[in-house]
Design a protein around this nucleic acid. Structure first.
Length: 236
DNA sequence: ACTAATGATTAACA
DNA sequence: TGTTAATCATTAGT
């Protein structure tokens, strides 16, 4: 009977729709759901859960139909036999009981396999590694901006990480991951990141210039002094 | 289909 | 405990 409760809680069993979304929400809450792609993941999860639910109900119905059909056959057989030998109603009852028990056992198997499917779906849903999503363009912009403007010491403090996480609408752990990856990958192949580095250092330089010189905008020659390219290995 | 980019995980380390 | 380095698994560009 634990299986019944489980299926009910997941919204697979039970009366039609309405519970599935609640179950999905509960799972997200348990996982510390990311507010970013929440809706998308939800839809995916709900869709797959609905599939499982549909299969479950179809199978259940099939079993019930087969069960009643089979009991009908057996009853007919017994009735025919009752002409040649006396059959007590108790015997008939016992026969029906046996058949029912058999079919309930089969239903149990169905419930178990359905439970398994739900569990697998849940574990996949909860495993962030399997369903990785790239950060938004803005988020990577912000992160890169910080990284290249602190290239000498690209280790944001806890507070800085929190600030970045808020700006990018990702978790602090994700910010830490990003910086870890960025540092190692930058160090590993600086040449590959030259273009990006130049882009961001130039951008911040332009921003700074824009803030300091608001009055005269006649300097369109676009700051030709972009020679601060920071090439530690001497390339370029 | 193949490959590069990328976010997450893990062990080793200081 | 936070970081590095290697690696995994998915996404995106060709």
């Amino acid at each position: 009977m634990r299986l019944d409760n489980m299926l009910l809680a997941e919204g697979v069993a039970g009366p039609e729709r309405g519970r599935a979304s609640a179950a999905a929400a509960a799972i997200v809450a348990a996982a510390g759901g990311s507010p970013d792609n929440e809706n998308l993941e939800h839809a995916d999860y709900r869709e797959k859960l609905a599939q499982i639910r549909q299969i479950y109900h179809a199978e259940l119905e099939k079993y019930e139909q087969a069960c009643s059909e089979f009991t009908g056959h057996v009853m007919n057989l017994l009735r025919e036999q009752s002409r040649t030998r006396p059959i007590s109603p108790k015997e008939i009852e016992r026969m029906v009981e046996i058949i029912h028990r058999k079919f309930i056992a089969i239903q149990m198997q169905l419930k178990q396999s359905t439970c398994e499917a739900v569990m697998i779906l849940r574990s996949r849903f909860l495993d962030a590694r399997r369903k990785r999503r790239n950060f938004s363009k803005q988020a990577t912009e912000i992160l890169n901006e910080y990284f290249y403007s602190h290239l000498a010491n690209p280790y944001p403090s806890e507070e800085a990480k929190e600030e970045l996480s808020k700006q990018c609408s990702i978790t602090v752990a994700q910010v830490a991951n990003w910086f870890g990856n960025k540092r190692i990958r930058y160090k590993k192949n600086i040449a590959k990141f030259q273009e990006e580095a130049n882009l961001y250092t130039m951008r911040t330089a332009v921003d700074a210039a824009g803030v300091s010189s608001q009055t005269n905008q006649a300097n369109s020659p676009a700051t030709p002094n972009s020679a601060l390219c920071y090439t530690p290995d001497g390339s370029l």
